[in-house]
Design a protein around this nucleic acid. Structure first.
Lengths: 163, 163
DNA sequence: GCTTGACCTCAAGTCGGCTTGAACTCGTAG
DNA sequence: CTACGAGTTCAAGCCGACTTGAGGTCAAGC
């Protein structure tokens, strides 16, 4: 497989052309030249986009992601930094787990007012309260998982890798 | 403890006054009257704010949160809806867990290019790829946990409950 | 040779969740 | 009386990650 035009990259990854251009502008991906005015991409861009998707799915900002990747798509962070990132995620996961439990609990617990229930209160404290100052957990859509596929991209997509 | 003015609510919860006004405007909290032009809040607003913080920490949008609370601060969702929410979170948690593992792995795995490592690839697929279309996971700050306390609110805060 | 359609650029718009600023009103203390 | 500080309103601004729209270019097919 040789160079791909933007439409093919988009089709193979599900990432809209507009986003690809935007990513290029931000330096997250690079086109390997032009044919006329049209961008040409090397197939390795697919890997790179997968990596970017990984980062995005992990809640990392684009700037942060680009600081994590070398031009040749290697994570360039040192062990310490990667571990730190893993730890961050770990805390988020714990928080989300607490919230999930609170929700589950709310679904079952018969107490009229959840705040009267010690378990629920504990969850509140764990989830948001105590750490609120320390960890203003950013906006991240919980509806993410619901099947709300954005607008339909031009291909069938799914970011599956080649071979 | 009787009615509180906006400053006290802010001090006790760490939520800035501007945010409280904003929340009131959005119908998320209600002031129980005015003394002159100044809002007065019932102490139960603290519980309500804790609940809101819980929801925010869970990544729910404000609109969604308000649809989950009755005026008297009870979760008003039926069991099914709560369970569904719990399930959403569960999926997010799984994804984040996969990413955390990928990061941990990247920190340790000696393979020069992570994409050559089957474990890493699996994580990529799990984390972002396969479900990319189905679950465009929104922006949520992974840096959330790092101690980057936003600007300093006017009190000492921590959303701790009374009594 | 002309239309079509896929690509291009650049500027501006969108959305959520707030924050900020200007301009105003109070109650109280000096 | 007057100044102060803490509250108020309303409109506008900010951030990130894109999307959208207007207007332009170009190769290919009829």
């Amino acid at each position: 497989m040789k160079d791909m035009d933007i439409a093919e990259v988009s089709r193979r990854t599900g990432v809209p052309a507009s986003t690809l251009r935007y990513y290029e502008e931000k330096g997250l991906v690079a086109s390997i030249g032009r044919r006329g005015q049209r961008r040409l991409f090397d197939p390795t861009v697919l890997d790179r986009l997968a990596l970017i998707a990984l980062g995005r799915a992990g809640g990392f900002a684009l700037d942060e992601i680009s600081s994590m990747l070398t031009p040749d798509s290697l994570p360039k962070m040192d062990r310490g930094r990667l571990d730190a990132k893993a730890k961050e995620l770990d805390q988020i996961i714990q928080r989300l787990t607490a919230i999930r439990e609170a929700l589950r609990h709310a679904a079952r617990c018969p107490a009229a007012r959840p705040m009267e229930c010690p378990a629920f209160r504990r969850a509140v404290r764990l989830a948001g309260a105590g750490r609120f100052e320390v960890a203003p957990i950013g906006p991240f859509k919980a509806e993410a998982v619901s099947v709300k596929r954005r607008k339909r991209r031009t291909g069938h997509a799914s970011l599956e890798q080649p071979h």
